[in-house]
Design a protein around this nucleic acid. Structure first.
Length: 158
DNA sequence: GCCAACGTTGGC
DNA sequence: GCCAACGTTGGC
């Protein structure tokens, strides 16, 4: 199963915003991950599949991974349709919070681990939607205090 | 606040 | 099709 990393500026959309989302039954709710205006990022959005897991990363002053989300709806055009590029729909996916990091993992910490130095996060600091290798995923989950082998979601309560 | 890296635009 | 100019992102 592919893994991903999603960046967000917490002043615009934060982990707190994400985890308070609830559906009418009071269950954790999904929200569109929209506003992506980069073709490389768009390509990755198109590759995401239902159930894929993503790190939730705060840019700006925080610069750390704070939680996990899962894909609950595969790529679809943004609503209302965006027309910034003629006949080219910008797309989004839906995501739902899965688990909060017990210990958020900072960018500076990530840089300390040789096995993480190939991460897209370090190699292309501007890409807001990016793939994560399975080894990287497992390593980072453990560093955040989460068990990547726990098949029962949520990995920890929010 | 600065600026490097990246992406886009438009003139040629 | 190249590339200079410009705008934006996001780390520092």
């Amino acid at each position: 199963m592919p893994y991903w990393l999603l960046k967000t500026e917490p002043d615009s959309w934060s982990w707190q915003d994400q985890i308070v989302q609830r559906n009418p039954k009071g269950e954790r709710g999904s929200v569109p991950w929209d506003g992506v205006r980069n073709f490389t990022a768009r390509k990755f959005l198109l590759e995401m599949r239902y159930g894929d897991l993503c790190f939730f990363y705060h840019t700006g002053k925080e610069r750390r991974i704070v939680g996990l989300v899962e894909i609950t709806r595969e790529a679809y055009p943004e609503v209302p349709p965006q027309k910034e590029i003629a006949s080219f729909p910008w797309i989004c996916v839906d995501v739902r919070a899965v688990a909060s990091a017990l210990t958020p993992l900072s960018l500076s910490e990530i840089k300390l681990y040789p096995e993480l130095k190939e991460m897209v996060l370090l190699r292309n600091s501007r890409l807001s939607v990016q793939p994560v290798r399975a080894e990287e995923w497992n390593r980072i989950c453990l560093l955040m205090g989460l068990d990547p082998m726990d098949k029962n979601l949520p990995l920890v309560s929010l």
